[in-house]
Design a protein around this nucleic acid. Structure first.
Lengths: 194, 194, 194, 194
DNA sequence: CATGAATGAGTTTTCATTCAT
DNA sequence: AATGAATGAAAACTCATTCAT
């Protein structure tokens, strides 16, 4: 007696999830190129062939990861935008970004790695571009916050703000040492919300 | 008539240099994994076999690049340290760093890419570590500048300074748009040299 | 209420037929190797597993096709043999063969393809052999017709007749152009029934 | 000391020839699909990788074979056309074709197999088409012979001639039995050169 | 009886490295 | 010192077949 379609769908989803989780874990741990399909299959204890029932190949796995990531980042931003004052919004962005990095530095590191992909790597540059474009989109939104704060040059201010935030995120994600997280957050918030 | 030993050595050095230049160019353009030994050999018009007379393999080429890079960065720092006042020193660091990025964003991008290498890529992580360690060493020197400036918390100030500088460098190296380079430099210098 | 055994048997037969029809269609369209079990299952809208309830595997599907084909060809011959005079018999063979090709050239093309299978394709050569042996058997019968016609060398005449007929069938099945079917039939009949 | 370019070229040509010969032998013996790159490499005692130094892949090997074949067939025709009278020309075609088949029936069998490739096998149909188109081209030339012989319907006569010849070739290439080669040749020649 | 998720052996292909010349 | 033909291990991917449900 065959499984019901619902049962099958449940199994499919569970498998997809298992594959994706294994791929994400290994891509983040070892990088895209250093991770083989065999590695992923072995790590999640399924056969190589099964992966191809659900994904066109290795690259599609990365593509899915990037799409998800873009969703997550947008989420953080839209949460911030649901708040009232520009000050609250900036505070939320800073806290959201830095807390995330602090909890999972290797995730941010991975996407930074992807974002800095050389321009001529034809396979991967599209994902770098996706991330960069999404960041550019979010930057435009961020400018609005500085407008509402009455900055005389909101784009410039927003750019400097992004640089500072990205810089701190880079440091946390890259250097193994402890960072005075809370103080850094306070400092940025103080500087840009005066 | 056989060549003199000096002549021979000169030829050797020229060949080594040619190989290294080709490798650097392609690693930067396409990335380490996406560049094959064949690509390098074809690009510099020598035989694949020759490469192995001078380098142990693909990885040693990267290793040499990283060593060189570390030297270059140290150079910028020691130039800064040859100046008198801490203010001049900081100004020199900011100008040196940002002008470099501005001139060759893809170089910085490449080393950022390397620096964000996932931890478990056994082949490449050592180079990421080398870069990070060198940066940490330079950071210690930088702290001295802030001490001399009479900062109450020189390490913290130095950390924030590094973050801002790294953030701007990341943005310039990653985003295709034009940045107001001079103004950003002025802004950092003003903020950290008051 | 369980189905009656007869009902069950009817359903079984219908399923077997559906599978075979789908396999035949795809084998003829794409060839044996270029057709996957998945293709067949998708095309006939049943599950891959079901196929294995009725057939041992992909090869048995081909085997069934070939058996059927041999039956069909024998049918044409025995129809011819039910006629009175050798002249009528030959005419019937020519008309039957050429009309068949003309109606479904791709069917003949497929079996020609199978018949010309290289000798050392261990999977498929047996089907090539089956077809060839059947043709040889029919050839023997055909010789009788030429004996009855009073040919001095009936085997030789029969061989030449077969060659001409096979040649025309090959041309019709292989070349896309229009052929003067009726005239060709007349010509053969005239030539061999004088 | 490196090999001279001439020496290298010699080695390359020898290797290419070795690969091609092995591929041809196995394609003919086992068929294209049933022959793997591994088979070819093992059979000619070189490494799998080497094949890719000289050919883009399996399909290019087939493509080369087909090109060569087309050249060979054209050769037979142009030899015939170098003769004086249409009668000599036809005789030459018949003798050339049948002697070739007789010497290497499996070669003709292989190309017949390719020529009868199902239309929807996207990988191989192009080679089938190449052969068919070449045959059509040669057919046009052949019509000229029948024109010169003063046939009232030269195309029709040429078509019938081709059918008979193709039929005999098919029989010889497909059936294991002995054929009265010389007599068949005489018979065709007599029939079409009266 | 029927399903389709899962398997794994087999395929094509790539590429860092070796080595005879 | 220099060449590039050759290797072979490892990669991505395919698909006939099995089996739990």
């Amino acid at each position: 007696m065959p499984r019901t379609p619902e049962e099958n769908e449940r199994i499919r989803q569970a498998t997809i999830e298992k594959i994706r989780a294994a791929a994400m874990e290994l891509f983040m741990k070892q990088g895209y190129y250093a991770t083989s399909i065999s590695d992923i299959a072995k790590h999640a204890r399924f056969s190589k062939g099964l992966l191809y029932n659900y994904y066109k190949g290795k690259e599609e796995l990365l593509s899915e990861m990037v799409k998800d990531r873009i969703g997550e980042v947008a989420e953080v931003m839209s949460e911030a935008f649901s708040l009232e004052t520009p000050k609250e919004q900036l505070t939320s962005i800073v806290n959201g970004a830095i807390d995330n990095i602090h909890k999972n530095p290797e995730v941010h590191r991975f996407y930074l790695h992807l974002q800095t992909q050389p321009e001529a790597d034809v396979d991967l540059i599209k994902y770098s571009r996706l991330i960069i474009e999404e960041n550019a989109r979010l930057f435009e939104l961020q400018c609005k916050i500085f407008e509402r704060m009455g900055e005389s040059e909101p784009r410039r201010r927003s750019l400097y703000f992004s640089s500072v935030l990205q810089g701190i995120m880079l440091m946390i994600a890259t250097y193994p040492q402890k960072f005075p997280i809370e103080e850094l957050k306070q400092q940025i918030i103080k500087e840009f919300c005066k």
